[in-house]
Write a protein that binds this DNA or RNA. Structure first.
Length: 293
DNA sequence: ATTAATGTTCAGAA
DNA sequence: TTTCTGAACATTAA
């Protein structure tokens, strides 16, 4: 479930690769169901070898390794994809291994070569690895354009992109073509902080509420980044150095069905299904009708 | 032993 | 243009 904060944590964790040269690229095991590589795996791996990594970036929920040949390696973790830096053992379901050598020139002519290993692991195998033209950014990393990153957007832009829709605001927040980076966890969390019912139609939301929602999104995403993301009970996500995220302890509504709302201390958190996904909210803090006379 | 549920993206259809 | 449905997949809980 890597959403924006989890992918940002991955990005920060593999920053030590920047400046290094890829000396090996391969997939250590043959899977019955390989993930999607573009171009196909063998050609992709061959194209990576010898390239220098010039930057590591993030766009929505995608991780981007810029290379010195104007291309970019784009990793889409989707459900269970994650990266690890210098893992003690090679785990199962590894989809890509990158050996990266960095040279550090010491003042007195000592040449120190540091070799690092980055792996992309994906248990369910829904993730993708693509090598794309690095100049076509920022929007079209995949087959479809994605919207602006949730941390870069202004509140007016949020309103303009979603405000005319009739669907539930929570469903709209998950549309990566409208706004990139928000997933199931942080959509519920942000709506709770903004005191907006998740089923409220976008077109019924006022300017003031869009402002509140925008502010809540920024706050929730930044808090989550500071906590290195959310590691849920399935343990599918962890940081590149294999530490658990801590934001799950700070969730206000997500997977807290039946608990008392931490905000108003009166409501009991409810779970509903919106757009086929679990949605959590406080019926007291987030009334269906805003009562703003 | 089945079956449901998990969350993200995409193809295809309404 | 927008919205909905099902498929892709592994693992666990019921």
């Amino acid at each position: 479930m890597p959403e924006l904060p989890e992918v940002e944590t991955m990005r920060r964790g593999i920053l030590p690769l920047v400046g290094g040269v890829i000396v090996e690229a391969f997939c250590p095991t043959s899977h019955h169901h390989p993930i999607k590589y573009s171009p196909p795996a063998d050609r992709l791996f061959a194209m990576l070898v010898g390239r220098r990594i010039t930057a590591v970036e993030r766009c929505g929920k995608r991780l981007l390794l810029r290379l010195d040949d104007e291309r970019a390696l784009v990793i889409e973790p989707r459900m269970t994809g994650r990266v690890m830096l210098d893992p003690p053992q090679i785990p199962s379901h590894v989809r890509l291994v990158l050996q990266v050598v960095s040279e550090h020139q010491e003042p007195h002519a000592t040449l120190d070569c540091a070799e690092r290993t980055m792996i992309f692991r994906d248990v369910r195998g829904l993730g993708t690895v693509r090598l794309l033209d690095g100049n076509t950014f920022p929007a079209e990393l995949g087959p479809h354009k994605i919207g602006p990153d949730a941390l870069e957007i202004y509140w007016q832009e949020l309103r303009d992109r979603l405000g005319h829709r009739k669907c539930a605001v929570k469903v709209a927040l998950l549309d990566q073509k409208a706004i990139a980076g928000v997933g199931n966890i942080y959509a519920s969390e942000a709506l709770h902080l903004a005191k907006i019912h998740p089923a409220m139609p976008c077109c019924a939301i006022t300017n003031r509420q869009w402002q509140r929602l925008h502010e809540a999104l920024q706050r929730v995403l930044k808090e989550a980044i500071a906590s290195q993301g959310s590691t849920l009970s399935d343990g599918a996500y962890a940081t590149p150095s294999n530490e658990a995220g801590r934001y799950q302890h700070l969730h206000r509504v997500y997977q807290r069905t039946g608990e008392r709302c931490c905000q108003c201390r009166r409501g009991i958190i409810r779970r509903i299904v919106l757009g086929q996904r679990s949605t959590f909210y406080c019926p007291v803090c987030q009334p269906i009708r805003s009562r703003n006379h």
